[in-house]
Structures are given as structure tokens and as C-alpha cells.
């Protein structure tokens, strides 16, 4: 929060298609440092920004596999570490250990997903000006740019149907 904001232009939009068009126009002009705020996830915006699929899925998969492996490892190792025959079953019984392995698959998978979410959100964090309206009903676009290019960006955003454009320093 204490990070110093880069200066730039902040625009608010009412309409999703206008915002998407503005993003495309900015990208065509070569502006890379664009942050878009939306109250809900939106396919049109995501396409305009042009993201690849989030790598979080890899975390889920690896977490799940790790959980499954540790479930079997934990149960089998603990069984043989102090072998006791209980209820006439083999010391290490794979059939019931499936239950533990399954639960740990889910637990680790979910945990890893959260970690992945936090990690990638942190890595791709965008610092910029912000307005409370963007979690309510408006779409925000923040373009970080040096002072000399601001008039051009301001012009572009204003013409693309922004309801408000302001310069943030």
C-alpha cells in the first residue's frame, strides 16, 4: 500500500464494450503498462487485455499429486515404523489408506491452489491509481506513462467513451 504510485492516467467507463475498445486501442499504440479494474470477471476485457490461461492450474495438479504421494507415504511408513497387526488386517493395507491419500490429495491440492493464487497475484501485482467505484459498477483503466505522453493518452481515453478521465501524479 505504501508503494509509490507511478503517475499516469485513470479513466472510468460505464460500458464494457467501450472499455474493451479502449484497451485494444492502447495496446495497438504500444502501451504495455495498462491496468484494468472490473467489478466482475469479464471475458471481453480479458480477451482485450490478451492474457494467457493462468498458471495456477499447475499448482493445483502438483499439490494434488504431492498430497496423494504423501498420503500413501505417511500411512505406510507409520504402519511399518511400529508394525502392529490390528483387526487381522495386513500391517500396511493399501485399500483403507486410499481414504487418507485421497483426503490429503484434496487438502494439498486446495492449499497449493491458494498458494498459487497468492503467488501469481503478488508477482503480477499492478500498482496504480484506483477508485472505489471499480468494485461497484464501473470499469477502470489506468495507464502508467511519463508526463510527456499523457495528453495523447488522455485524448484517446476521452474519445473512447470514458465517463471520467483524470491525471494521477
Amino acid at each position: 500500500m505504501n508503494k509509490t504510485h507511478p503517475g499516469g492516467i485513470l479513466a472510468a467507463y460505464q460500458h464494457v464494450d467501450a472499455a474493451a475498445a479502449a484497451i485494444k486501442a492502447l495496446k495497438a499504440k504500444g502501451y504495455r503498462d495498462v491496468t484494468v479494474y472490473t467489478p466482475v470477471p469479464n471475458v471481453e476485457i480479458a480477451q482485450a487485455v490478451g492474457h494467457k490461461v493462468s498458471p495456477v492450474r499447475l499448482w493445483t495438479l502438483l499439490g494434488g499429486l504431492l498430497g496423494c504421494a504423501s498420503g500413501f507415504a505417511l500411512t505406510l511408513w507409520m504402519s511399518y515404523d511400529w508394525p502392529l497387526v490390528v483387526g487381522g488386517k495386513p500391517v500396511g493395507s493399501v485399500i483403507p489408506y486410499v481414504v487418507i491419500a485421497f483426503e490429503l490429495t484434496i487438502l494439498f491440492g486446495a492449499g497449493a491452489t491458494i498458494l498459487g493464487l497468492l503467488f501469481h497475484s503478488w508477482r503480477t501485482r499492478q500498482a496504480g491509481a484506483y477508485d472505489g467505484r471499480f468494485t461497484d459498477d464501473q470499469i477502470g483503466i489506468f495507464v502508467a506513462c511519463p508526463v510527456e505522453r499523457r495528453p495523447a493518452v488522455e485524448e484517446l481515453l476521452r474519445h473512447s467513451g470514458a465517463v471520467e478521465v483524470r491525471v494521477e501524479t
Binding site: G88, K89, I95, P96, V98, V99
Partner: peptide, 12 residues
């Protein structure tokens, strides 16, 4: 399958 197998295996 597992629901049946587990119960049958365990009940023995």
C-alpha cells in the same frame, strides 16, 4: 466400486 470393495474387504 471402492465403496463396495472397502466395506466387503473390511467386514471380511
Amino acid at each position: 466400486v471402492f465403496s463396495q470393495l472397502l466395506v466387503i474387504w473390511y467386514g471380511n
